[in-house]
């Protein structure tokens, strides 16, 4: 794997390989010293053109635990404010000699676009409404960790699908791993045409809940009200939120997931966020080994399927 741009570029087998590698790195995380020298000497730039604390921190930790050198580059403090173009910024970063660019951008398609301006590996850390592939991988990892497999599992994604890169990448990842995916949202928050998506649309959340293995709730942005896509937070919670009443309709074995940050009391009730079925913090924790697996896959000494264990790349932890 040279780049990670979109889940659409990966086969189910490749997804499994990344998750297997992530399992190995997860074992490393359980040790006293959580660092391996797998990417010693490699330089990774975290180019976050759109602010993000959790994803950037997660990539930062993942890179450091692989012993890579990490440079943070964020939009707020950068030359972008001085009007430098995306191309000039990427070419400047590349000229400094970096091995990978982890990029977050508010515009869909940017990770793909910048490949023409750099020879570094490109890892998509979220582009516009398009893709957030490492989120999909850490979500898949979390589900697989819990159930052993995604095959045959019924997973609902509920909320703002149309504006969600998490939804687009998760539909692709979950379906490629054998799950049945259901999208639940008012029409205003659904894409205009999901031909080619391996998912079905349901409008009645209550009817779907009892049969779910995973109930995945997406963050609702305040500006959706201003755009008249939904009338109010209160009405959204009443119709599409995971209230305590709805949580009671879920199977005791089901998982409750959310990519964070959560709007407690809107898409998920405060008590439900702390329900023992909620694995939101597991998702966050799993982000580290999954991102280690991705960085290792694009920068490591060979294909990830040739590497049984991170230790195979040499050195002592």
């Amino acid at each position: 794997m040279k780049h990670l741009l979109s889940i659409d570029d990966l086969t189910g087998d490749q997804l499994h390989d990344v998750l297997d590698l992530a399992s190995n790195f997860a074992d490393v995380q359980a040790r006293e010293v959580r660092k391996v020298p797998a990417l010693r000497g490699k330089t990774i730039v975290l180019a976050f053109f759109e602010d993000s604390t959790r994803t950037r921190t997660s990539f930062d930790l993942a890179a450091r635990r692989l012993s890579a050198d990490v440079i943070n580059f964020s939009a707020g403090s950068s030359s972008l404010k001085k009007g430098e173009s995306l191309r000039d910024t990427i070419e400047t970063i590349t000229a400094m000699g970096v091995d990978a660019i982890v990029i977050r951008h508010a515009s869909s398609g940017v990770p793909s676009t910048i490949r023409q301006w750099t020879d570094a590996a490109v890892v998509n850390a979220g582009d516009g409404w398009h893709q957030h592939p490492t989120q999909a991988l850490l979500d898949s990892f979390t589900i697989r960790e819990h159930f052993g497999s995604l095959a045959g599992k019924r997973i609902a994604l509920c909320g703002d699908i149309v504006h969600s890169r998490v939804a687009r990448s998760n539909v692709a990842a979950f379906s490629k791993l054998g799950a049945e995916v259901v999208l639940i949202a008012p029409r205003t928050l659904l894409p205009s045409n999901i031909d080619g998506w391996d998912a079905t649309i349901e409008t009645d959340l209550d009817a779907v809940l009892p049969d779910l293995d995973v109930a995945y709730f997406l963050r609702i942005q305040k500006e959706r009200m201003a755009e008249s896509l939904i009338p109010s937070e209160r009405e959204y919670r009443a119709r599409y939120g995971l209230t305590t009443e709805r949580a009671a309709m879920l199977s005791p074995e089901a998982l409750i997931m959310h990519p964070g940050p959560m709007n407690r009391g809107i898409e998920i009730d405060p008590e439900v966020a702390d329900d023992k079925r909620a694995v939101v913090l597991n998702q966050v924790a799993n982000g580290i080994p999954v991102r280690m697996a991705i960085l290792f896959s694009v920068l490591g000494p060979g294909q990830f399927d040739e590497v049984d264990s991170p230790r195979a790349s040499g050195g002592q932890p």
Binding site: G109, R168, S192, G196
Partner: peptide
């Protein structure tokens, strides 16, 4: 154009 491709690409569509 709003349709299959705008939905897939995550770009705002014009109906």
């Amino acid at each position: 154009h709003e349709g299959v491709w705008s939905s897939r690409l995550g770009l705002a569509g014009v109906p």
